[in-house]
Design a protein around this nucleic acid. Structure first.
Lengths: 206, 206
DNA sequence: GTTTGTGAAACGATTCACAGCT
DNA sequence: AGCTGTGAATCGTTTCACAAAC
């Protein structure tokens, strides 16, 4: 089952959201075409995406919504919970932790770190902000699989190195820098600024 | 010059950042290889990316840093300023507007809208939060090129439709939904939740 | 008749490799 | 000698199109 494109996985996330909506409205089955029109792709793309993982549909019928939801959750690794550490208790971090959507989808933020003495020790949605200096000790005591890096750009790589040393499995980087990490660490970078530049380019060149 | 891949543009944004760092440190020239190692690509990729827009380097020498910075700014459409409206004065929107990085890169948030009566009229970094109901009037009086949609998922499509009606050129969508818009409207969607799911998949399947 | 699942074809992006400048 | 610029080759993704299942 190896060798699934990142673009495919992104679409699977979208399909899951649509299917959950359909499920909430009590829809029993859905066709690849319906899924496609909601997600801005084609029916062939939907079927190809799913075909990497098995065959879930009934010819002439489409896909059974609740079953498909369960399958996609399984495929995406959302049938379990993930422990997440948040690094950086600034505005962005703050917006993240209070966003209940993460918890609903299986991601539990179990620790928050910052380097600012004024923030250390303060309460945060049931958590206490810990000193970044104690990162190693804290994460060895209570390991996490994923870290969200919401710190200034110039601090990101240093923290990524420390996380790598701790054996972190994945990093979600919210800074407009390219992190250098060993190949066994999964990294996704999300940068509003870079997306805005993409829009700027698109608007300029046409 | 048409037909540049989105992945290419994203890398150009990265190159620009590295080049700005090099410029700040007074480095005069840089080779495709140096640029590549900082950005996680290959030297051939760097050269190919740039080749879409002309030839900027000197064989045997590399690229002149300050000139290259100016060129990339031009290419990305950052040699001008863009007017941006922020829709949604919640936590995420709040984090965004106070993030000075946008202004530094040429994106001026000139209006903020929300639908919550408790927020309307309050001051926000020199701006006053306006009633979402008055979106059309306000944006006709003072148009913007780009809108950042930082509202709950279920409100996103409705606002996208209203923005489209106003002739908006581009939308940066910060909600985990796929927006349906006419082809002349550029959309980029950024969803932390979906990236986390990508990490979940990667960790599960290996 | 409808819709899936999937090889094959088409398309697009990346990597290779080398000629041509400096 | 070093490094760019770029066609050609390779690799990966998307689209096509149709046989098989319901």
């Amino acid at each position: 089952m190896r060798k699934v494109a990142e673009s495919t996985v992104r679409r699977l996330s979208l399909y899951l959201r649509f299917l959950e909506e359909f499920a909430a409205r009590g829809v029993a089955t859905v066709s690849s075409g319906e899924l496609a029109s909601r997600g801005g792709t084609t029916s062939a793309q939907v079927r190809k995406d799913l075909s990497f993982f098995g065959s879930f549909g009934k010819r002439g019928m489409g896909y059974a919504v609740p079953e498909m939801v369960a399958q996609l959750r399984e495929i995406l690794g959302l049938a379990r919970r993930w422990r997440v550490a948040l690094l950086g208790a600034g505005k962005i971090g703050s917006a993240l932790i209070e966003h209940r959507g993460f918890r609903e989808r299986g991601f539990d933020i179990v620790a928050v770190f910052d380097q600012d003495p004024r923030k250390i020790g303060t309460a945060w949605n049931g958590l206490t902000v810990q000193d970044e200096a104690g990162l190693e000790a804290a994460l060895r005591r209570a390991p996490v699989e994923i870290a969200i890096l919401a710190v200034p750009s110039d601090a990101a790589q240093g923290l990524a190195d420390r996380l790598t040393g701790l054996g972190i499995a994945a990093i979600l980087n919210v800074a407009p820098v390219q992190l250098v990490v060993p190949p066994h660490v999964e990294v996704r970078t999300v940068s509003l600024a870079m997306e805005l530049e993409g829009l700027s380019f698109a608007l300029t060149n046409r």
